[in-house]
Design a protein around this nucleic acid. Structure first.
Lengths: 233, 233
DNA sequence: GTATCATTCAAACGATCGTTTGAAACCCTT
DNA sequence: AAGGGTTTCAAACGATCGTTTGAATGATAC
């Protein structure tokens, strides 16, 4: 162990370079040679420091995601402490969960923005080991927030809420992906760079999310009694 | 040309197989050998019928996306014809744009479901040629719908609306991705298979989208007068 | 100075990728 | 039955992937 206080700078350079490149090209299309070239390291350094490309990806997500979810839980802790036995207002829970993420996505220098764009996209990533890893990493924080939401929204059926939460995640994902995709919508006519004004993006997204969360409950089509089995049409 | 009425079944089998596999593994991770194996065709058939993997992907998107967008435009045409000079109600425009997509996503037999899941994910796809292709394919339909929305929502600033439209696309994307990602949220506790009840999903998503679209406008942070250049903090 | 460890490096590994080839098989018209 | 055009096939192409190797280099402790 050469230097304990500044653990192998190569490791960090590789992680940072990988983060940038994964956002730009995707997990599969980014090669270890691209990464090590950008990190100014040798190709063998990846397997030396991480063991494999897969392990590198996991470590890359872990170092940011752990922090992100800790922040989320801490924010929820504060809210629940303030509220005492009363339920926390839904809007505040939404802000605790998504606000931390949007704030992280606003960090252009520290790489938080890159990571959030990567994370958003990865939520629907097909690769099996990524899905499993994310599910595990999210389990605790999701359980806590779901519980808080259920308590805060007693009039909303739980299944309905879970869907709305899912939709909210989608909206946030696209909000963070930002200019990548929205230029398709905006046709370049308007200035669509959320890095230019993260506070505005935050305000916009929150309005939208709260609006969707608090929307009138849908009239669901004729409830098929419990187990329809839906044989023939 | 062997048979004009039933153009080379191999072509179609390859497209269908590719669609299934692309959803499951992603564009990059799906190899031509996997595709031709599933399609019961020879590996060379892809390059014979399409020219390249890239061309196969474009053709795969084109055959469904063209139809989808035609349906969207037709639906909008009907709405505008009914409304005459008056603006069409926002909720109806939303239903025209997203309803067609959700309905397509409900088609489990014809492959529409697979395609919509693929399309949703691909909207944030990093691959350059995919982005360009999608932007081109979407240009017309987006222009029409944006115009209709602007007319229907004169009180909403256009930039605000474009963001909300962007958020709506994200919500729909996740709605269609369905069980893939939502099991992370649902933890398998609830039954989360939108294929089981597409009508319910449609109703849920519409409520959410309309709620978000019609949400109170956000209070944007201190408007930096036009061109802030934002040098130092 | 020397032994010991951690790290870096150039080079090569086998595997697999998309693509190409040239011949065989097939189909339809004459 | 013969011919020409279309489609399929097994096999191979060069390129590039993630990974491994073994020696060179660096830093630390004795």
């Amino acid at each position: 162990m050469a230097n304990v206080t500044e653990i192998s700078d190569t490791r960090t350079r590789i992680l940072d370079a990988a983060e940038r490149l994964f956002v730009e090209h995707g997990l599969e299309a980014t090669t270890l040679r691209m990464i090590t070239a950008e990190a100014q390291a040798n190709i063998a350094a990846v397997n030396y420091h991480f063991g494999s490309k897969e392990a590198l990806i996991e470590e890359l997500f872990r170092r940011r995601l752990t922090w992100l979810n800790e922040q989320r839980l801490a924010a929820l802790d504060r809210l629940e402490a303030e509220a005492g036995d009363a339920p926390v207002k839904p809007r505040l829970i939404v802000e605790a969960f998504f606000g931390v993420a949007i704030r992280m996505a606003a960090d252009t220098e520290g790489g938080g923005r890159n990571f959030m764009r990567l994370l958003s996209r990865t939520y629907t990533e097909p690769a099996e080991f990524v899905k499993n890893f994310l599910a595990e990493e999210y389990a605790l924080v999701l359980a806590r927030f779901k519980k808080a939401f259920f308590k805060a929204l007693p009039d909303v059926p739980q299944e309905e809420f879970l869907w709305r939460f899912h939709f909210m995640l989608g909206a946030m994902s696209y909000a963070v992906s930002g200019a990548d995709a929205i230029n398709v919508v905006g046709e370049g006519k308007l200035e669509f760079d959320n890095a230019g004004d993260p506070d505005a993006l935050y305000a916009r997204l929150m309005s939208f999310l709260i609006g969707g969360l608090r929307a009138p409950l849908p009239e669901l089509p004729a409830k098929q009694s419990k187990k329809p089995h839906r044989k023939a049409a």
